[in-house]
Amino acid sequence: MEGFQTINSKAIPLLLINVDTDAIIPSREMKRVSKRGLSEGLFAGWRYKSNDSRELEPDFILNDPEYNGAKILLGGDNFGCGSSREHAVWALHEYGIRVIIAPSFGAIFYKNCIRNGILPILLSDQNIEPLSGKELKINLENQLINDDISFEIAPADKEMLLDGLDDIELNLKHVDDIRSFENNDRVKRPWAYL
């Protein structure tokens, strides 16, 4: 995955509490064998007037032309709670979201964000409200919003995002260990290899 770059974008305010992953991507939208093609189903229950017609619901914030191409989403408490489906994050990423700012997140959703190149930022309600609709600059390296609001993130998570590393790449850092394990093991347990 690409490393996380500084993001400049308008912030879409979706200031609801308990936005669960079923709302982010309903089950019926996950009928594909892919992490791709999910953005169309993002917030489908809210974004479209009806399930079948896909006619846009003008009142839903994502459909406001002002936020076309915006990369930052502002959320309420417990954002991404519920089902562990990684599809929620895949859909958000494909749609173009790179940063989600909320007072708290669903635990699995938070991890899934880190793993898939989305920066989850924890900020208090009072600090989020004033950012609504504003043009923001998010710098992960310095952990700063607009050069003046700082945020916390675990060093390992930061590293994973900045370097664009995934579990596979982390494992491959041990490629020598894996090779030498295999070489020894093939001698010790030849029957285990097909």
Binding site: S84, E86, R115, D167, I168, L170, N171, L172, H174, I178, E182
Partner: peptide, 16 residues
């Protein structure tokens, strides 16, 4: 395991 973990195992032969 999960689907992403399966990718990890497929690509690297190891899991954390």
């Amino acid at each position: 395991i999960g689907s992403t973990e399966a990718e990890q195992a497929l690509a690297t032969n190891v899991l954390r």
